[in-house]
């Protein structure tokens, strides 16, 4: 506060300067303080308590977490999230990129193809889940059709088979989400300088090699952003499972977000819900913090 003169000469009264802008930002400030920061701290704090029906500040250390990790349903939820997450990442990247590369070949009807591939993204997970529940219905859907074509022993009932139910959900999730990935990838491909392609062509490098060794490495930022978007979406997956299987058969397709909801609002076991949601937060943090650090930490921007 010593060097007054130069630093503050052009802004004499700090608090009231720009007052309207500060008033206009009040909703944001309240949201950040009370919901994003306050809510998160609150939930994490109460995850160390023995809250049941009502939140109570009776600390029990890591009890809730120990119980969480010894609950079969939570373990299954985590396994499902892993399978769903990894498959969904791999498939949506591969499918999204291949489709984008095909769309980038100066084709006709590009708009039509894009409109068709992207429309599921406009639909809710509830609608998506219910449609695929119907298509995968073994009595009427795909299994029935293949059987009626003569292959009577054909079995395809992912939603009724505990071992593969998560792949049934994956099919629906990919149908809904790959359009978005394609659009993002296409934007990335369009951002590559045409000269790169010319140079590669002059050197006689085949197209697939150009994609693999030149274009994809150049698209790193797009890939990273897409990865963050998909990953934070995967952790949240909830509606799709509720609509398609309600977690069944049994508890075979449970996911963490559903665990949180059920324990908070149905089993009246708040502590478990808080501990589980804190674990979800941890999972997202592991993905987002390194990304945010790379993205915003390195260079300063206004």
């Amino acid at each position: 506060m010593g060097g007054v003169g130069v630093a503050t000469s052009d802004r004499p009264i700090n608090l009231f300067r720009n007052m309207t802008a500060k008033v206009a930002a009040i909703p944001m400030i309240l949201t950040v303080l009370f919901v994003f920061v306050g809510g998160t701290v609150w939930t994490v704090t109460y995850s160390f308590t023995s809250s049941k029906l009502l939140p109570k500040l009776k600390f029990v250390g890591l009890d809730q977490y120990e119980r969480l990790w010894s609950t079969n349903r939570w373990i299954i939820s985590i396994e499902n999230l892993f399978i769903y997450g990894i498959c969904s990442l791999i498939f949506s990247f591969v499918i999204g990129f291949v489709l984008a590369a095909l769309m980038d070949q100066k084709i006709r009807f590009e708009n039509t193809f894009r409109t068709i591939i992207l429309y599921p993204f406009a639909l809710s997970f509830i609608v998506t889940g219910l449609v695929w529940q119907w298509i995968l219905n073994p009595e009427f859907g795909v299994q029935n059709i293949v059987r009626s074509l003569g292959w009577t022993g054909f079995v395809f009932d992912p939603l009724y088979n505990a071992d593969i139910v998560i792949y049934g959900i994956l099919i629906a999730g990919l149908w809904q989400g790959t359009g978005l990935i394609m659009v993002l990838m296409l934007a990335g491909l369009r951002g590559i300088d045409e000269d790169v392609w010319k140079a590669a062509r002059v050197d006689g490098i085949p197209a697939w090699k150009t994609y693999l060794f030149i274009v994809i490495p150049m698209m790193r930022p797009v890939f990273v952003t897409t990865l963050v978007i998909i990953a934070s979406g995967i952790v949240r997956v909830y509606d799709l499972v509720v609509a398609q299987t309600s977690g069944g058969p049994g508890i075979a397709s449970e996911v963490p977000a559903k665990y949180v909801y059920d324990y908070m609002f149905q089993s009246q076991n708040l502590g478990q819900g808080f501990a589980a949601s804190t674990m979800m937060l941890l999972a997202v943090a592991i993905v987002v913090i390194p990304w945010a650090y790379l993205e915003f930490g390195g260079r300063k921007r206004g």
Binding site: M28, T31, V32, V35, F36, V37, G38, G39, T40, W42, T43, V44, P55, V228, S232, V235, R236, P256, A257, V260, Y261, M264, L270, G273, F274, A276, S277, T278, M280, L281, V284, V288, A292, F296
Partner: peptide, 18 residues
């Protein structure tokens, strides 16, 4: 910055405080 980072916090963490 907190607002944007907050967009990545799973909703489940903030449901009950709200």
């Amino acid at each position: 910055t907190i607002l944007i980072v907050g967009a990545f916090i799973p909703y489940q963490v903030m449901i009950y405080p709200i």
